[in-house]
């Protein structure tokens, strides 16, 4: 017979088993099929869109835009839908009772489930990023070869071609793109934690999905709107000011993780700043998982 005291301590191994199990469960639900759609998007943007633009460097931008859009959509939708169904599905399948009947602390159960879902997102993002970098690199090299051939053939406006070559060289795969992808991943992780928190007190999976989407939407536009309102604080009055502070206090700020727009247009984020964003994201995850635990621990199952 096992010593029950052993199970009172936090066990990364137990969390790992739960995470692996959740990962398998999601893989069986064909979550990775999205990668096929993504590869189609990347290839279409690489092969077909070139006929729609005059600027060779813009072709690479279009590829990046479409790919990051697909990654953001996948990250957001998956983080909400998959996490929202983690607990309801286990309740429906009665797996939750089997697991909790064993000496598994509820926090470990929540953490394991959350990490399993996030593992799917991280793996998918890594594969998508790899695909994007490979296709982007191949397209960049093809365009560079084209431009170099024009230069070698003594085409007029050699200097303009040299400018295009410089732009193409700057628009290939870079560490900035990786930071943008990491920020999308981080955003999905925060959103997953928020959704898990909502699902601990939600009456249904649908309710969780709707509320999580609302929180995400408000969390995204709230910082921009608050920034705008702050410019006219005096005219708003103290009641409106108080309302703004309450909104700021309650809703998570997703705007901090929005780096894609600026990275795609060629800006580079200093690593120190990226680590600040990373720290912020991980704090959100810890706090929301903790809040989720307080409610889940008290839940009658």
């Amino acid at each position: 017979m096992h010593n029950l005291a052993v199970y009172r301590h936090f066990s990364p191994a137990r969390v790992g088993v739960l995470a692996r199990n959740t990962l398998t469960q999601l893989v069986r639900m064909r979550a990775f099929y999205f990668l096929l759609i993504f590869s189609v998007i990347v290839l279409v943007s690489a092969l077909l869109i070139q006929n729609f633009t005059f600027d060779p460097a813009r072709q690479l931008k279009i590829m990046k835009d479409m790919s990051f859009f697909a990654m953001s959509m996948f990250g957001t939708i998956f983080a909400i839908v998959a996490t929202a169904n983690l607990i309801p599905k286990d309740v429906e399948d009665r797996t939750l009772y089997t697991i909790l009947a064993k000496p598994v602390p509820r926090f470990e159960y929540l953490l394991g489930k959350y990490l399993g879902a996030m593992l799917v997102i991280v793996l998918s993002m890594a594969v998508m990023m790899l695909m994007l970098c490979v296709v982007l690199y191949l397209r960049q090299q093809a365009l560079l070869t084209e431009q170099q051939a024009l230069l070698d053939a003594g085409a007029p406006h050699a200097e303009e071609i040299a400018v295009v070559i410089d732009e193409l060289k700057a628009d290939g795969p870079s560490t900035s793109l990786i930071t943008a992808a990491a920020a999308i991943c981080l955003q999905a992780m925060v959103l997953g934690a928020v959704t898990l928190f909502v699902s601990t007190f939600a009456s249904s999976g649908l309710f969780t999905v709707v509320v999580a989407f609302m929180l995400f939407f408000v969390g995204y536009i709230e910082p921009v709107v608050v920034d705008y309102w702050r410019g006219s604080m005096e005219s708003l009055g103290s009641f409106a000011n108080a309302c703004i502070h309450v909104v700021e206090l309650i809703f998570p700020n997703f705007q901090s993780f929005n780096l894609v727009d600026d990275v795609v247009s060629g800006k580079t984020l200093p690593l120190s700043l990226f680590f600040k964003i990373l720290g912020m994201g991980l704090s959100y995850v810890v706090v929301y998982l903790l809040a989720a635990y307080f409610i889940f621990a008290d839940k009658e199952l």
Binding site: P223, V224, D227, N253, S256, P270, L273, M280
Partner: peptide, 22 residues
């Protein structure tokens, strides 16, 4: 987090990030 996020937003703006308007 609000003061930390405000500082982060200012840092991002200083690096020409998030220059969006409504």
């Amino acid at each position: 987090r609000i003061p930390i996020e405000d500082r982060l937003a200012a840092d991002l703006k200083a690096h020409q990030f998030h220059e969006m308007t409504i």
